[in-house]
Write a protein that binds this DNA or RNA. Sequence first.
DNA 1: GAGTGGTCTAGACCACCAA
DNA 2: TGGTGGTCTAGACCACTCC
Lengths: 228, 228
Amino acid sequence: MAPGWEAIRAEVMNRIRSRVWPPGGLIPSEETLAAEFGCARATVNRALTELATAGLLERKRKAGTRVAALPVRKATLDIPVIRAEVTARGQAYSFVLMSRDLTAPPTGVAARLGLASGVPLIHLQTLHLAGGLPQIFEDRWLNPAILPQHEPDFTAISANEWLVANIAFSTGDIAFSAEAASPAEAAALSVSPGAALFITERCTWSAHAPITWVRLAHAPGYRLQTLL
Amino acid sequence: MAPGWEAIRAEVMNRIRSRVWPPGGLIPSEETLAAEFGCARATVNRALTELATAGLLERKRKAGTRVAALPVRKATLDIPVIRAEVTARGQAYSFVLMSRDLTAPPTGVAARLGLASGVPLIHLQTLHLAGGLPQIFEDRWLNPAILPQHEPDFTAISANEWLVANIAFSTGDIAFSAEAASPAEAAALSVSPGAALFITERCTWSAHAPITWVRLAHAPGYRLQTLL
DNA sequence: GAGTGGTCTAGACCACCAA
DNA sequence: TGGTGGTCTAGACCACTCC
């Protein structure tokens, strides 16, 4: 008699697909639906909340719930640690720290981190290898203020893994793009300059202090893949 | 006295970050936490369920709740309809259907869709423009079996929008990569051949029939961005 | 002001599964 | 088999926002 919230979600999806509730249209209130389905309002709420999170419904207090006119598909990407990504493919992982400096970053990087330009940051350039072949060229700027007094040995543990293990839980943003390989990137990755590279750019902050800005240039052939 | 579920989520995140609850470690049961926080178990459940969905916790009946050993960052991408993406930037959207054929797709495409090679599909090539400038070159293979008897006029409505409006609720996958512009893509997008292009490749199915395979080549400068 | 969604409660039953 | 998470209920209060 009383369907579960997943059954209600399925039924609502059916009514949207079959145009019983057309795009942009108002659907009955939670209370009405609860009466129709013979369940508690909280159960209807659980189903509708999930559909709203998925982008199929738009909900507003007092205004009610509408079917999204243009349903925005949402895809969830997993951003694994590089080592895990490589070993999951059955390849041996290694990395080489190519350079370490303490210097002021380009103004663009400083701006993205919310720092005044001129503040020196630790600049690390690292090459990640899979099965001995260059896989990712990493260009990272790291806020020295978040490091312990004795700086970790980034030739022994990659900055990424040290951060994951020691500075967990940051907010930030991530962007993906395609760019032509710069001479430095081309040399590091053993490709010709101008080759199309997949670029991942990440920027992370802890509570109030910026942590790191990092740009990963992936060797040709890289694909970022997920279920829709 | 009784914190909301978001406050509980924040507190749990703090305990994970501060290693009060170390990676891989078991955390107290919902009942215990509810008593500690002075709220109902359902409220704790709401918070923990969300953190599990986000990949920070792993929950199993009887076994309890553990802090994820390797916190896999998850990023949620919005995949908007192209028109919405362009108009959201305040630019005028238009598109041009450059070609339409009924022919057998390359074996790679047929395989991805789970079709025998040799089955003819509708092949559409479309150029999407923003403010009159080429933005995306779309190469699409469409299963004619899912179309109504009278094929929609894809010069009037883009295939993407027709599908969203008429074949809702499909599953599928999506992949992103960087590739050098082919001569055809270079000509359509007004870039030099070999330029680095951001590629989106999507494959969708309805209940049992394949729907479409589509490859979008984005003009240089495109960035796919999201919060982490 | 009134209707709607957002959240919380105290309790309950069930499904799962490690011990 | 007992402990744990997953879900549901009936009711309640609040926050928002449209009218």
